[in-house]
């Protein structure tokens, strides 16, 4: 990572660490959700921003993580064991999915991921014995970690996600992923095992959403199929990355802060309107700001700098 990146990171981290000291519970909750979005967006950035394979169903890993975390916690597991297991289970789900779809080129992966969030929601509704179906799961407040703990867990995830992204961007692995995005056939012909790389990226990109889902379950202390397999969440992580800048380190962070703040102040209370606007935003970003705000900033910088 470059020094400027470390500087920005340290400043953000410093503020986030002190935040519980001067923010009220509502503000802290909001910040927790921003950090959650940073985590989700970085994960999406890894598979879709880096390799160009668009995952339309990444929310499914969050939902699976939420259920895993909630059930394990209610079963008596330590909260951190529950989080860890949620991450691993989400990745374990991603692996066969990736094996099935990432051998194929082009749009197959996107199509296969398209309905996945919805499939997750339907399964959670039908598998009543495990999930309680539509009644959901209420977590006992005696077992759930307190808000500050959840906040710091989410902060740890967001830091981990961003550090991981920073490392990948500087690593050979990241270079190989970018080569795949540029021209997959040529990359393979240069000796890059494209399938293995895509599989690793995809599986890794499911880990942190799984963990984030578990923490989210502790934080809300009640989950049901439609609150964790939430279409809005699924769409938001894509829009956040597009807004900030695909395949960049700080794009997802910037995008998360901006989008979450704006929608909190305006339309977040109206789900259909919210999603309609997210859809519109997605179209506009792809057409008019394909490199996101960071890309535009760079372009302006190089023109006048």
């Amino acid at each position: 990572m470059r020094y400027s990146d470390l500087g920005i990171g340290a400043l953000l981290l410093f503020f986030s660490l002190l935040a519980p000291g001067f923010l009220n519970n509502y503000q802290l909750s909001f910040l927790l959700q921003v950090l959650m979005m940073v985590t989700l967006a970085q994960s999406w950035n890894l598979i879709s921003g880096m390799t160009g394979y668009i995952s339309f169903g990444h929310g499914v890993f969050f939902g699976v993580g939420a259920y895993t975390g909630a059930l394990l916690l209610m079963g008596g597991a330590f909260w951190w064991v529950a989080i860890l297991s949620a991450a691993l289970l989400a990745a374990a789900l991603a692996l066969p999915l990736g094996l099935l779809t990432l051998r194929l080129r082009g749009p197959y992966f996107a199509i296969a991921m398209l309905g996945l969030n919805e499939v997750g929601r339907i399964l959670a509704n039908l598998w009543v014995d495990l999930t309680g179906g539509g009644d959901g799961i209420a977590l006992s407040p005696l077992l759930s970690p307190v808000l500050a703990t959840n906040y710091f867990s989410m902060l740890a995830l967001a830091v981990l996600a961003t550090l991981g992204m920073g490392w990948i961007l500087r690593s050979r692995f990241g270079l190989e992923l970018r080569a795949i995005r540029e021209d997959e056939e040529a990359a393979e012909m240069l000796g890059i095992d494209t399938i293995r790389n895509k599989l690793i990226a995809f599986t890794a990109s499911a880990l942190l959403p799984g963990a984030a889902g578990a923490i989210y379950a502790f934080y809300t202390s009640f989950i049901d199929p439609s609150s964790v397999f939430l279409p809005a969440l699924n769409v938001q992580m894509i829009v956040v990355v597009l807004l900030g800048g695909r395949g960049t380190l700080w794009g997802p962070v910037l995008g998360a802060v901006l989008l979450m703040s704006v929608q909190e102040l305006t339309w977040a209370e109206f789900p259909a309107l919210h999603l309609a606007l997210l859809g519109l935003l997605m179209i506009l970003l792809v057409l008019y700001l394909p490199d996101g705000l960071l890309g535009a900033w760079k372009r302006i910088g190089s023109r006048y700098g």
Partner: peptide, 16 residues
């Protein structure tokens, strides 16, 4: 992939 993102956005917009 660009066209996938745009038509996905359109689908979400129209549905909502």
């Amino acid at each position: 992939l660009t066209s996938l993102l745009v038509t996905y956005g359109l689908s979400i917009l129209l549905m909502n």
